[in-house]
Every structure is written in C-alpha cells, then in structure tokens.
C-alpha cells in the first residue's frame, strides 16, 4: 500500500521460500519489488542453526524472463544463531532464457559455509512491467485489430468497487497505462497497455459496469501464455 505516486507499485508480502528444516537451519523468506525501474529480490535470512553462517552466495537457474542477480549477495558480517538480516538483491533481465512451467517460476541456489540449498519461488509479472509501457494510441488501435481473436483471453475480476479513475491511477503506479477511456451504455471501457522487460506488449480492455462489482478484463497479446499471469497481477494490484 502506502501513499500514491509512481513509486507505490504493488508489493506482495514476503513468503517462506526455504524453510529452515530443509536447509540445515537457514530460513529464507522473500518477495520481489520493482522500484525506480529496477527489480529487487528482498529477502529475510534467518539463522536457526547453532553455528554461525558465513560465505553466502546466490545463483539463479535459467528462467522465462532472463532474471539474473545484478551483483553478488552482499552479506558483510557472519549471521549469528537466532539472527535475522534483511537483504535486497538487485536483479537484471540479461540472463539466459529457458521457458519455465509455470512461466513465472524461478529456481534459486543459495550457498553458505554449511552447504548449498535449492528452492523455487514464483515472481509476480508486474515486476517486469517497464516504465515506457504506454503504447502510442494509433499503434494500439492497429495492434488491437491485428491480434486475432484466438489470442484474446477474458477474465473476471470479482468483488472490486473502485471507480474507473481510481482503477487507472492504481494500475498506472504499477506501469499499466490507460490510453483511452470511453463510456458506452453506462459502462466504462478502459483501454490499457503494458510492456514486459523482454519487449512483449500486452493490450487490455477493462470493462466496469456501475453497480457491478465484477469487472471484465480482456487481454490481447501475441504470447498467449502470459495472459493468465497478467490477470493475476491485475487482481493483486486492484485488491491490494
């Protein structure tokens, strides 16, 4: 949450990625954020073992959107038993590509002085929504026509009571841009665009009917498999 403005994009709460029982006492919980155009993996590392932990390092497996650590994991002091530290790892998108199932799955290896540990986590696709994702209006109209209807996916966003303008503002904080708004038969139709870090564009039509808490989201994208993940991020952003 927090106050409005361009830096208030949606951040999921931290979840446990590596339970201590699976990692000889090391517990890692984390989340992903996009801040000022950069992606960060924010983690809490807890030492639940009886010995000091040192020599931390992190690696990602190849993944769908080329996520890779932008720098080594910076942990400057040994992690004492019962100690927890917060770490923010800068992440870039110039790693190697390998399509994962699910698409947003990230396999991570973490080592310390005790052993090497592996875990998987899921990142919300909104960390990949770039700041220049506002499509030119003419290009939007042409692209919307050009993408065949087989590539249109529809989803219901349930139990949402925001106005069309509140929806636009909230989504824009997460780099989903409203290009046009029309009211037809009392329904607000928002035309929106976003662009992923790998250059994939997603076009959206969000239909809001007065008195109806269920919005209809139509997504058009040449890469069809991203649509369910985009829907999930719409839900999270709007319900946050």
């Amino acid at each position: 949450g927090g106050v409005g403005g361009p830096s208030a994009s949606y951040i999921a709460p931290k979840s446990v990625w590596l339970p201590a029982v699976k990692a000889k006492g090391l517990e890692i919980s984390g989340t992903f954020v996009r801040r000022m155009g950069s992606i960060y993996m924010e983690m809490s590392l807890s030492n639940n073992a009886m010995q000091v932990m040192t020599d931390f390092a992190i690696q990602f497996n190849k993944n769908s959107f080329c996520l890779a650590p932008a720098a080594p994991l910076q942990i400057n002091a040994p992690l004492a038993p019962n100690q927890t530290i917060e770490v923010s790892l800068a992440v870039n998108t110039v790693g190697s590509v390998m399509k994962m199932d699910p698409l947003n799955n990230l396999q991570v290896a973490v080592k310390n002085n005790i052993d090497v540990f592996y875990f998987s986590c899921l990142y919300p696709l909104n960390i990949l929504f770039v700041e220049d994702g506002k499509m030119d209006r003419q290009v939007f109209l042409a692209t919307w026509k050009d993408i065949p209807s087989e590539n249109e996916a529809q989803f219901q966003i349930k139990d949402c009571t925001l106005s069309a303008d509140a929806v636009s503002n909230k989504l824009q904080s997460s780099n989903i841009f409203t290009i046009a708004k029309r009211t037809v038969d009392g329904q607000d139709m928002l035309y929106q665009s976003l662009k992923l870090t790998n250059g994939i564009w997603v076009l959206a039509e969000l239909r809001i009917q007065p008195g109806n808490p269920n919005y209809l989201l139509s997504l058009k994208c040449r890469a069809r498999e991203v649509a369910p993940h985009i829907f999930q991020t719409y839900e999270k952003i709007l319900k946050n």
């Binding site: 109209l141 029309r182 139709m189 035309y191 039509e205």
Partner: peptide
Amino acid sequence: ELDDGLDEAFSRLAHSRTNP
C-alpha cells in the same frame, strides 16, 4: 485538443465491443 481521428476510433472500438 488535437483531433487526429483517434478519439473517434476509440469510440468506435468501444461501441463495437459492447454491441458486437
């Protein structure tokens, strides 16, 4: 505001989507 015909095009799109 500059009328480049796009405002009208978006109106047509919205109408076509609500009354296919």
